[in-house]
Computed example of a mutant assay.
Amino acid sequence: MGLDVEGEVKQLVEEIKRLGGNVDGKTTVKFGVLFADDRCANIFEALVGTLRAAKKRKVIHFDGEMLLQGAHDHVDVVLLQE
């Protein structure tokens, strides 16, 4: 079974909408909130990989190349496409 990256990115968008708030007209969530969420933990085997894939597709934005739990808990993950 191959990884359904598109499906995971779509699911990530839904989870960001569920957990995030509106900041300057964009839905935004802290990485730590996403990472600590039980539902996200159950859905995404590799949350960091899904975030990177979504960023590459310009679906989300965050500062830096990669987000690490603890070190980047306060980094904003911003939804670019609703």
Rank of each mutant, 00 (worst) to 15 (best):
H72G: 02
V29G: 00
V59G: 04
L79C: 10
T27D: 02
A41L: 13
E65A: 06
D63M: 06
E6D: 12
E8P: 04
V75M: 01
F35A: 14
D24K: 06
A54E: 11
I16H: 01
M1I: 13
E45I: 12
E6C: 07
D73L: 10
E8H: 08
K26M: 10
A53Y: 03
D73I: 09
L12R: 07
V59D: 03
V29W: 06
V75S: 00
A36M: 10
L12W: 05
K55R: 14
F31N: 00
I43M: 15
D24A: 07
M66C: 08
A41R: 15
D4Y: 11
R57T: 03
L19Y: 06
F44D: 14
K56Y: 11
D4V: 13
K55W: 07
D76V: 07
R52H: 11
R18L: 07
K26S: 10
D38C: 01
D38E: 15
L51M: 12
L47N: 09
F44I: 15
H72V: 04
D63R: 09
L47V: 15
G2E: 14
G21E: 08
I60H: 08
L79G: 05
V13W: 02
K55E: 08
G64T: 03
G2V: 13
I60P: 08
K58Q: 12
M66D: 08
E65S: 12
D24I: 02
T50W: 04
